[in-house]
Structure formats: structure tokens, C-alpha cells
């Protein structure tokens, strides 16, 4: 098995300017909101350039694939997403800012991936997508891309409170043989280099994000697993309650930052 501590340190060489003011190529993007900064502001000019250019951004093919899947009939009910939701629906324009959300029937949070699969199983009578599959990435990238430029805006009120608290607790808990919490790296040391890697605030506003190191876009849960493993901690499963709660907390940390999906990072 790969040595994960080594993993962080051998990762792609990041030579960015910390705290770069963020002169956006498209004027509507908010890369800084209050004391919060997107990973974009820590990225090199080169990486920013790839993200800014829809043609150069290798994840844009997923936007197109997702758009095609949106109106593709699948499953025993003979329906597509488009059978029930207009492509210009209000739902689609802000869904990328709001998830995870509380689902009263389940009595817990639901991530966008889980919502998509619920719709597939219940409304379309179709097979659920696997978490990190091309189809799931295409659908989530397409959907979040419809909210690009809008501020991250998860609800943390009412029934969400205990799940938010659980996410915060996870974030502050030291883990693994290296005994580090998310906060140790992404709050206490944002802007500092850990060997060759420049630590950012670990914001989620660009997910699913295209990572140059992965040569592929990945979900936020894939990133959580990577960050857990690099401190030699056992990761949780894709779609686990722990990660969905954590996802909510991380999304709240980035409130007000523009959705950037699909972002490009090292």
C-alpha cells in the first residue's frame, strides 16, 4: 500500500501566491467572502487559467455528458429527469448551492448524489449510480455547474443542527497515526506550506473538482478519504453519514463563496 504521509508531500508541486486577491476572469465570481477564500485563490495562475477557460478545463466534458443524461430516458418508469424538471427550472439553478439538505423522511441529511439516486430508484425505477462513476460525476457536475457563480448557501437551522454539530466535531477531531484534525491543516495552517504543498482552507465550492493529480474529477467524499488516509486514518465510506455531515459543515465554512464546479486544482 502507498505511504500516505509521503503522498501529500510528493504530490504535485504547488507554487502559488497565498492570499492572491482573485481578479476573476468572469466578473460574477466571488473567490473571497468575509474571511473565507476559495482554493482558487491559492492556485497557480496556470491552474486558474485552466479552470477559467471552459474549453481548456478537462472536466467540461462532464457538463455535456450530464446534460445529455438529464434528458435520457432510463429505468422501468420510462422517464428521464427532464420528464419532471424543466432544464431552466429554479430547482436546477440553485441546487448546487444548497446540498446536503435535511430529508424529513430519512430523518437525516442527504447529499446531492443520494438525492439523484433516490430520484432514479423511486421516480424512474432505474438503477442507482455508483458513487464515483462517470455517470454520477457527470450528473453532479452538470447540476452544480448550473449554479456556477452563485453563493454557497447551505441551511444549518432547525432539524439540521445536530448533523451540523456532528460535522463540526468530525472536523476538529484528531485522527490517524499522525493525529491531525482537518482544522489543524485547513484552519490553523491555511496559507502555509507543508513541504511542497500549499495548504488552503479546504473549501468545497469547486466540487466535484478536476484534480491534475487524479487526471479526473472526483467527489468531495473522495477528497475526504484522501485527507483521512494521508494522516494514516481509516477513511469512511462514500456516502457514509459521517461524510455527509462533514460535507455540510465544510459547505457552511465556505458560505458565500461562488460555486465553481467544475473547479481545477492540483
Amino acid at each position: 500500500m502507498k505511504n500516505h504521509f509521503q503522498g501529500i508531500l510528493m504530490g504535485a508541486v504547488v507554487v502559488g501566491l497565498s492570499g492572491f486577491a482573485g481578479i476573476a476572469s468572469s466578473a460574477e465570481m466571488t473567490y473571497k467572502a468575509g474571511d473565507r477564500s476559495s482554493g482558487y485563490t491559492y492556485a497557480t495562475k496556470e491552474t486558474q487559467g485552466i479552470q477559467d477557460d471552459d474549453i481548456a478545463n478537462p472536466a467540461y466534458v462532464y457538463v455535456d455528458d450530464g446534460e445529455a443524461l438529464w434528458s435520457k430516458v432510463d429505468g422501468k418508469a420510462g422517464k428521464s429527469c427532464a420528464s419532471c424538471h424543466a432544464v431552466d427550472s429554479a430547482m436546477l439553478s440553485d441546487v448546487g448551492t444548497r446540498y446536503p439538505v435535511y430529508n424529513a423522511k430519512l430523518g437525516k441529511l442527504q447529499s446531492l448524489e443520494q438525492k439523484i439516486n433516490q430520484e432514479r430508484e423511486e421516480k424512474m425505477v432505474a438503477k442507482p449510480y455508483k458513487w464515483e462513476s462517470g455517470s454520477m460525476l457527470a450528473m453532479t457536475i452538470y447540476m452544480r455547474n448550473q449554479s456556477k457563480g452563485k453563493p454557497m448557501n447551505v441551511s444549518i437551522d432547525g432539524p439540521v443542527i445536530p448533523f451540523f454539530e456532528a460535522g463540526k466535531k468530525f472536523y476538529d477531531q484528531k485522527r490517524g497515526q499522525l493525529d491531525m484534525s482537518c482544522a489543524n491543516c485547513h484552519v490553523d495552517n491555511a496559507g502555509n506550506r507543508i513541504r511542497a504543498n500549499l495548504l488552503t482552507e479546504g473549501q468545497s465550492n469547486g466540487f466535484p473538482t478536476y484534480r491534475l493529480k487524479w487526471q479526473k474529477p472526483g467527489s468531495i467524499h473522495r477528497r475526504f478519504r484522501g485527507c483521512n488516509k494521508q494522516v494514516r486514518a481509516t477513511p469512511y465510506g462514500y456516502g457514509s453519514d459521517e461524510y455527509v455531515n462533514l460535507e455540510l459543515y465544510v459547505a457552511w465554512r465556505g458560505r458565500g463563496l461562488s460555486v465553481e464546479t467544475p473547479a481545477v486544482r492540483n
Partner: peptide, 24 residues
């Protein structure tokens, strides 16, 4: 502190199986 303990082998949370019970 963020600095890891290099000579300690217990009291951690969810250590990967491969490193369980071991000091760095």
C-alpha cells in the same frame, strides 16, 4: 499541536490497520 508524536503507539483515533499499534 499539529506536530505528530513519533514515539507513541496508542491513544489514536481510527488508525489505518497497517499502522495500528505501531509508533512512527
Amino acid at each position: 499541536t499539529i506536530m505528530p508524536a513519533f514515539y507513541r503507539n496508542e491513544g489514536f483515533t481510527r488508525v489505518l490497520k497497517k499502522f495500528k499499534g505501531k509508533a512512527m
